[in-house]
Design a protein around this nucleic acid. Structure first.
Lengths: 191, 191
DNA sequence: TGTTTACACTAGCGCTTGCTTGGTTACTGT
DNA sequence: ACAGTAACCAAGCAAGCGCTAGTGTAAACA
């Protein structure tokens, strides 16, 4: 087997796997389907990945790392005001869903299929991403921009954003920025 | 096979199935697991249900019907003010998640596993439930209680509420009513 | 030039899956 | 007493599953 490196071939395979996992779900996606999508036979798959689990972990790792990178960059480029930073995070979240939708959806809805060791490894990445949100929300609370329970507000906002993958249509009239704008407006009292 | 009636035995089996579907997911729940949980052999299962799909449909139908009934009752018993009705809907939604969690979670996360005909049949129920939300939100908009895009606000609120199944712990310090209170406070400007 | 490495193939093993079949038991109304 | 019926069981089939073993080949490296 190839070592667990990030060969370009492996990256492409991961991208294709993400697409299939979204279409069919992890359990219903067979190694034969994955292989066919990749233009090889099912046996050859195990040259690139130790087992099916590892493909899932690779998909989720890439998606989360991507989301983290985009969010960090958005915060760096944002004006320092709490409101601007809040808006930047919401935009970044939805931008990820737009450009890297497959991996993100898999991360959200197939997380429980990971085995324990993969979960342990990847939950750090996830926590790092959530920590960005907690920080930005705390700044907004401190500035009196929003009010309420820090924990609940974080969950509600992330819930509203994550759920967008269930109904948002990129081909529709609304841009991701429209959504971000509306969400911020909804949670900020009187402006 | 038993006709598709609602025999008491079938109801109990549906309840147990919901629990397993939540624990393991639909695909990973085998008919043998279901049968064992029910204290019968796997073959006997097909006396009560035509196939595995039908079990899923039964679970989702019951869950949605329950949610609809609870929400309707909550609205009937609520004071007529838009704010009270909004709060009543949020409470009802979370109450459903608390008392009938399994069926609700299955409805949310295993919907795609339904075949087309079941989807067509059940989506009417789903739409009826969402219509209640749209109505209440429209009343709040008309009363100037909240502002913004009707469609987006509905989606954001339902997203935030649905996502609670991912983190809310009924054994924790917060009651469902606490959550409802906080959510309403979050989206209502200045009070 | 000879050796290694990356990548793919063929073939199939051992197991699990959803579901069927044919028969048995216990109860119910006539 | 007897037919009908709901509920179950034992046994197993056909298909599909993840994964392995052994081999071939072309390019890269020594």
């Amino acid at each position: 087997m190839n070592v667990m490196n990030a060969s370009p071939r492996r990256k492409e395979l991961t991208r294709l796997a993400a697409q299939l996992f979204v279409q069919e779900g992890f359990d219903r996606t067979t190694v034969r389907m994955l292989a066919q999508e990749m233009g090889i036979k099912s046996g050859s798959l195990f040259h690139h990945f130790k087992d099916k689990q590892e493909i899932l972990a690779a998909v989720i790792e890439e998606g989360t790392q991507n989301a983290l990178a985009i969010a960090k960059r958005a915060l760096d480029e944002s004006p320092p005001s709490p409101e601007a930073r809040l808006r930047a995070m919401a935009r970044a979240h939805l931008e990820t869903l737009f450009t890297d939708r497959n991996a993100h959806v898999v991360a959200l809805f197939e997380w429980r299929r990971l085995d324990d060791s993969a979960k342990a490894h990847l939950s750090h990445l996830r926590d790092a991403y959530e920590a960005l949100w907690v920080q930005v929300i705390e700044e907004s609370l401190a500035a009196g921009l929003i009010h309420g329970d820090r924990f609940l507000i974080t969950r509600f906002i992330l819930g509203a954003l994550n759920w967008t993958v269930r109904w948002y249509d990129p081909a529709g009239p609304r841009t991701p920025d429209d959504l971000a704008e509306e969400l911020i407006a909804m949670i900020m009292p009187a402006r």
